Simulated assay, not measured.
Amino acid sequence: MASEAPGHHERLAHDDRRGDILAAVWSAIEEDGISRLSISSITKRVGCTRSLFYHYFPTKEDALQAVLDQSIDAFVERLIDWNASRVPGDIEGALDQAAHLLKSMVRGDSDHTARSVAHGGDASLYASFVHRVADRTARYVCSSTVVDFAARHEVRIDHLYETFYVLITGLIMYVRTHPDAPEETIKDIIASTLHIEGYTAKYPERRPVR
């Protein structure tokens, strides 16, 4: 059996320690909230020195951003799963699922970090988080879902990326301030903004004629 490449175990150890630190950031946020996050609270959970923390992250904010990246990655993975599970032609079903997914993400039903960012009082941090979610979501949908839709139906909006970016940003803010908003309302907003409400049972008279 061929021997492992030099440095293999060192890389694993390096990655493991970085992962331990990020897991500690998650834990600290879950227990104390973002506003009370500190390097000492992180290193205490990891059982490491401040110098080791600084070896991986120049500042507390850098570690926090890395955790937020993980949160966004997890949402994008759920978005990819949603896109893969869509039934071709079932636009209403896809809208129902999209409304549920977006509301769940904003409310932080399965992600304490997203919820903490939304209610942590740091407006700049939350604005950055919303921008990154909207940007990545819009780019993914435009390169996948919209392409599939365009192969079967007329796309009735211009400025695709910009429209999706504004739609997602607006919905995030709306759900944040109206956490009990019905998913049916979110679905209607998405459908009317994208001019696809005619493909739903609610507005069949608006279906475009090709």
Rank of each mutant, 00 (worst) to 15 (best):
A5M: 08
P6C: 00
G7F: 03
H8N: 06
H9L: 07
R11G: 02
R17I: 14
S27I: 03
A28D: 05
I29E: 00
E30H: 03
E31R: 08
L37I: 05
S38K: 05
S38F: 02
S40Y: 04
S40F: 02
S40I: 10
T43V: 06
T43D: 02
R45Y: 01
G47E: 01
S51N: 07
L52W: 07
F53M: 02
H55A: 11
P58V: 00
T59R: 00
T59Y: 02
T59S: 06
E61M: 10
E61S: 10
E61A: 09
D62S: 14
L64M: 04
L68D: 01
S71A: 13
D73T: 14
D73H: 07
F75M: 14
E77Q: 15
R78A: 15
V87W: 10
G89Q: 04
G89R: 08
D90E: 04
D90W: 00
I91G: 00
L95P: 13
D96K: 13
A98P: 12
H100K: 11
L102A: 00
M105V: 05
V106D: 04
R107A: 05
G108Q: 01
T113E: 02
A123C: 07
S124M: 04
Y126Q: 05
Y126T: 03
S128V: 11
S128R: 14
S128L: 03
V130P: 14
A138N: 07
Y140N: 09
Y140M: 13
C142R: 10
T145Y: 14
V146K: 09
D148T: 06
D158N: 07
H159C: 05
L160P: 03
V166Y: 00
V166Q: 05
T169K: 10
L171T: 05
M173C: 15
Y174A: 15
Y174I: 15
R176H: 15
D180F: 12
A181M: 12
K187C: 03
I189G: 12
A191Q: 00
T193W: 11
T193Y: 03
T200R: 04
A201F: 09
K202M: 13
P204K: 02
E205I: 08
R206L: 11
R207G: 03
V209M: 08
